[in-house]
């Protein structure tokens, strides 16, 4: 997969209008936007690093830390909220000892809060590594996590 440096180099002559598409492309390739990548971008665009960082932090779509092995998207849309998705989110935070960057203390899990996953009929819903899991309760969520962790141990 292309690195940030290669992505920037491939563009040739750069203008500041390309900042957001480049940030998106770098995140696509590397899973997140690193400080190193933002510094390179600032250099290439001849713009202060504070501006690159300012633009990147304005948008929810950009991540500044790498994704864990397992990615859990927690739906916090209206339907899921009514079905108490907050309890799920809070439980994940406690159980996985989430850091400020949204990943678990051991870095294996990354939790992303999403406004709506488009599966309201099975609310509250999460998406774990691309699979939907609906009608969740804290107990069912725990069982799911136990399974993922056991699976990882079995594989090891």
């Amino acid at each position: 997969m292309a690195t940030a440096d290669e992505i920037i180099a491939a563009r040739g002559e750069l203008t500041r209008e390309q900042l957001i598409p480049l940030l998106q492309e770098i995140q696509e390739a590397e899973g997140f936007v690193s400080q190193a990548a933002m510094s390179r971008l600032a250099e290439a665009l001849r713009t202060p690093v504070s501006r690159v960082y300012g633009v990147a932090t304005f948008y929810n779509q950009f991540r500044f830390a790498p994704l864990g092995e397992h990615v859990i998207q927690v739906c916090r849309g209206t339907a899921c909220h009514v079905k108490e998705s907050l309890a799920l989110a809070q439980h994940l935070k406690r159980r996985l000892k989430l850091r400020d960057d949204g990943s678990s203390a051991d870095g294996r899990f990354t939790i992303i809060s999403v406004a709506c996953l488009g599966a309201c009929s099975i609310a509250p819903v999460i998406k774990l590594d691309g699979e939907f899991y609906g009608h969740l309760t804290v107990e069912r969520l725990d069982a799911l996590l136990d399974e993922v962790e056991a699976g990882a141990e079995a594989a090891a």
């Binding site: 400080q35 501006r51 960082y53």
Partner: peptide, 15 residues
Amino acid sequence: DFVGRGFQTRVAPGF
């Protein structure tokens, strides 16, 4: 520059 968005917006150096 301005960093973040909404109520969390603040003026700060890069990173």
